[in-house]
Amino acid sequence: MTPAFEIHDMTVAYHRRPVLWDIDLQVPEGKLVGIIGPNGAGKTTLIKAALGLTPLASGKVEIYGKPYAQQRKMVGYVPQRESVDWDFPVSVHDVVMMGTYGRLGWIRRPGRTQRLLAERCLEQVGMLPFAKRQIRQLSGGQQQRVFLARALAEQARIYFLDEPFAGVDAATETAIVELLQTLRGQGCTVFVVHHDLETVRHYFDYVILLNMRLVACGPVHSTFTPENLQKTYGGRLTILDAAAEAMRQGEPGP
């Protein structure tokens, strides 16, 4: 069976300085996947590279066996909350409608079907009563729910969420996790950049441990081990840093 998500030999570099080295992993369909690693480990970069937002220095990313550009409609994305301007003049409903744009394609305008879908998604995250609000008037947790509803409106098979629990209240965190578990139940694969090691075992059934390189990728029970965590958090590989710096400066070895 084709894995839902596969990264093959991927190296990602900013200004030629690699931030992710030779990532190679496969994730089967229907998993709730935590992407775990210390700050600067390249978690967000992994997602951005998977979504074609950052060019790859080498390697490839495949969604159900095909490159991302051919599978856009199967992928939903929830960026970090602070990546957008919350003073933007849009209502909660408008934001969720944006999730339907990808399927519509160029020029075509959203219609009744899309409006109903957006309302259904808002309902699912419990934000329907706030549909007409301007988005600045929401709390952090509510903003995150709106983002999640927008992702739902993308009707994707694979979701990438970048730190959805950052700065949200406990109730929202629980609600989001439940929703993600529902999605998994429907056969979706969900990737979540996550910080809190305490909750990994409760939330996820699959983990990707990352620290500039892939430390491990697999089911939580066999992969989320103290030994692997030690490798992930036990300091960076100084040679990787030195080599990355050498590549940035482009200084050939003597």
């Binding site: 990546s83 744009y101 394609g105 160029w106 959203p110």
Partner: peptide
């Protein structure tokens, strides 16, 4: 008018806009 939703999305959330193919 023609590119209304594309202009709106790319102004609000450029990353999402790009991943959606706009």
């Amino acid at each position: 008018l023609l590119l209304w939703k594309e202009m709106k999305l790319s102004a609000f959330d450029p990353a999402l806009s790009t991943t959606m193919g706009f």
